[in-house]
């Protein structure tokens, strides 16, 4: 008893008490609201079940069904539209961030305008764009001012060759401002003396961007890209709200999953779909990391093992020299 008491009063003991008391609550919340439901969902994916009523263990049948149903994977192809959108969105954000960073009149005002859409609720954005794309409404009117003839314009949401592009545009509109602000934040942290030095050496703006700015903010670029790609795999709001539940060939994987889980009450199958999507996201993220490791290789200041290598080389050279000396 006394021993425990003494331990508790020791520095180590105090540390342990503080760590436990401070972390137990967040950990508990994390467990109760994230890991436990996830484990439950994982369990559900092996059952044939509705929300109420009997549950029947069916093993891997749900997973097999996910891969056999063509509508599940066709929905994943739609993600390519959103991934394309994500790339455009990041390029746009990066470009604008650079422009803002090199200084522009009224920069804060424009920054605010561009960031604003991110603050609007996704459902509200859905309703805004529903009217935006309606025949003869906002978009058609604006294009009319520019000289387009209404007859030649497509039905933005009805025409299946373009409606996914329309939906992706709404999500680009919402998120590029946020990406941009993150980029600006990262760019601001670059030491400005580096630019001055580069300028003195005769580097132009593009070279400054390519060799100073981009390498310095690559972590943020990568983070944004990973988030956007993950986001495009799980796109939900635009098709669900604007296209009233993903009609007309716009049902993404999430919309399909929602329909299977809630309208059709196939909870097991939907859980299996969720797990499959999780695995896909893992794979895609790992692939991206590998890709970036390759792309930014030359941008690294130094290989992590460079020091060791150099020592080895030095040792080798010394040896050689010694040997030569010995011979001599």
């Amino acid at each position: 008893m006394g021993k425990i008491h003494k331990w508790l009063r020791s520095r180590q003991g105090q540390q342990a008490v503080v760590i436990i008391t401070f972390s137990i609550i967040p950990l508990l919340l994390l467990f109760v609201f994230t890991y436990f439901p996830f484990a439950e969902m994982f369990k559900f994916s092996f059952y044939d079940m509705k929300y109420v009523g009997e549950r029947k263990f069916v093993g891997l049948k749900n997973y097999i069904t996910v891969f056999q149903r063509d509508d599940c994977f066709r929905a994943l192809w739609l993600s390519l539209y959103y991934m394309g959108g994500a790339v455009i969105q990041l390029a746009l954000a990066l470009y604008l961030a650079t422009v803002f960073c090199f200084g522009i009149k009224g920069g804060d005002f424009f920054k605010g305008c561009m960031f604003f859409p991110y603050l609007i609720n996704g459902i509200a954005i859905g309703f805004i764009f529903k009217f935006f794309y309606t025949r003869g409404f906002v978009l058609d009117t604006v294009l009319g001012w520019l000289g387009f003839d209404l007859e030649n314009l497509p039905y933005w949401l009805k025409d299946t060759s373009i409606n996914n592009v329309s939906l992706v545009a709404t999500s680009v509109w919402k998120y590029f401002g946020q990406n941009m602000v993150l980029f600006i934040g990262a760019m601001m942290s670059v030491d400005s003396s580096l630019y001055e030095a580069a300028q003195l050496d005769g580097a132009n703006k593009w070279q400054q961007f390519r060799y100073i700015m981009l390498p310095s903010i690559k972590t943020i670029v990568m983070l944004n890209l990973i988030m956007s790609i993950t986001g495009s795999l799980s796109a939900f709001e635009p098709p669900y709200v604007i296209m009233s539940g993903g009609g007309n060939g716009t049902a993404t994987y999430f919309v399909k999953m929602h329909e299977i889980a809630h309208t059709n009450q196939k909870v097991g199958l939907a859980s299996a779909m969720a797990i499959v999507l999780l695995l896909i996201i893992f794979v895609v993220t790992i692939l991206q990391k590998l890709f970036f490791a390759y792309v930014f290789k030359d941008a690294e200041d130094e290989d992590k093992n460079a020091g060791k290598k150099r020592e080895k080389q030095l040792a080798k050279a010394m040896k050689k020299q010694k040997a030569r000396e010995g011979r001599a």
Binding site: K50, K158, T160, S244, G245, G246, G247, N248, G249, A251, E259, I260, T263, N264, Q265, K266
Partner: peptide, 26 residues
Amino acid sequence: MNAESELGFNAGGNTKVQAIIEAADQ
């Protein structure tokens, strides 16, 4: 049957009727 067939008659099966309109239009 509604759940298993995913047709949802009188039970929220809106998309199947929407699909008829899409088919007719296309």
